[in-house]
Design a protein around this nucleic acid. Structure first.
Lengths: 148, 148
DNA sequence: CAGCATCCCGTTTGATACTG
DNA sequence: CAGTATCAAACGGGATGCTG
C-alpha cells in the first residue's frame, strides 16, 4: 500500500498564488465544458500522441518538409503512422499540406498559424517537464519500491 | 485531396519572434532527448488521457477529495477507470494518496507540489485552446467538406 | 515518392459483478 | 466505501506488400 510519505510535501491548505491560478483554471474549464468538452482532450490529445509533437516541432524548426524528410527526422516512425499523424494534424488545422501534383509525387508540409500557436503555447509546459524530470524519476522509484 | 487554401495563412518564412521561441524549443527538445525521450510523452501523455486532467483539476480546485467525491465530479467515469487514473497519477508523483486505514474505508487524494506545478504549467496551453476553439472547429469543417 | 491495404498485437476504455 | 475481477469492444501502433 502507498502511504503519504514524509518526503512528499502535501500542504493541507493552498498557497495564495496557486489559488489565483486555480481560479483562472476553473474559469477556463467551465468555458470549455460549455463549448465542447471533447474538443479539449482531442486537441490536447496530440500531446499524448507518440509522433504528433515530434512532427510539429520538426516543422517548427525546419519550416517546410516533405514526407520522407519527416520520416528521417522522427526516429523509428513507420510510413503508416507518419501518414496517420499528418492527417490528424491536418484535420485539426495545425499543419498545411501542399500537393504539387507532380510526377514523381512531391508533397510538403508546414505549420499553420494555429500550429505555431500550439507550439508556442506548449513551451512553458515543455520546460517545466524538463526541469522536473529528476523529480518524476524519483517519484517513480519511490512508488515502485513501495509497491514491492 | 486537400490543397493549401487561400484562407489558411501559410507563411513561407518565419516571423522573428516565433523563431526565437523555436530556438528555445529546440534546446528543450534536445535536453529531453538526452535525458529520456520516453519520459516526455509519458508525462505529457496525461494530457491525452481521458480523466487525468479532470482529476488534477478537481483536486486543484477542491484541495482534497475522496474516491467517491472524484467519481461524482467527473461525469461518466467508472470506478475502474478512476482507480486506474489515480494510480497512474500517483505513480508519476502528481497526486498523493492517503489511506486512513479505517472501517469503513477512507482514502483521500490531493495534489503534490509536482501536481500543482503541472496544473500551473498547463494554464497557458489551456487558455490557448479555449481562445482557438472556434478556429479548430472551422478547420474541422473545412477538412471534412474537402475530403468529401 | 507518397501513401494506401491488410493483418496483427497490445493497450485503453467501459459495463457488470463481486469483496474486505 | 474503495476498490478488484472479468469480459468485451475500440483504438493505437507496427510490419509487410502494393500502387499511381
Amino acid at each position: 500500500m502507498i502511504e503519504t510519505k514524509e518526503g512528499t510535501p502535501v500542504l493541507p491548505h493552498h498557497r495564495l498564488a496557486f489559488d489565483e491560478l486555480i481560479q483562472a483554471s476553473q474559469k477556463a474549464c467551465d468555458a470549455l465544458s460549455e463549448a465542447d468538452d471533447g474538443l479539449k482532450r482531442e486537441v490536447l490529445g496530440h500531446a499524448g500522441n507518440r509522433w504528433s509533437l515530434g512532427v510539429v516541432h520538426a516543422l517548427g524548426v525546419a519550416g517546410t518538409l516533405r514526407h520522407a524528410d519527416l520520416g528521417r527526422r522522427l526516429d523509428g516512425v513507420s510510413q503508416r503512422m507518419l501518414t496517420r499523424t499528418l492527417r490528424h494534424l491536418e484535420r485539426d488545422g495545425l499543419i498545411a499540406r501542399h500537393d504539387f501534383q507532380e510526377v514523381p509525387p512531391r508533397v510538403t508540409y508546414s505549420l499553420t498559424d494555429l500550429g505555431r500557436g500550439l507550439l508556442t503555447s506548449m513551451m512553458p509546459l515543455w520546460s517545466w517537464v524538463i526541469d522536473n524530470a529528476p523529480a518524476f524519476r524519483a517519484a517513480r522509484r519511490a512508488y515502485d519500491a513501495d509497491s514491492r
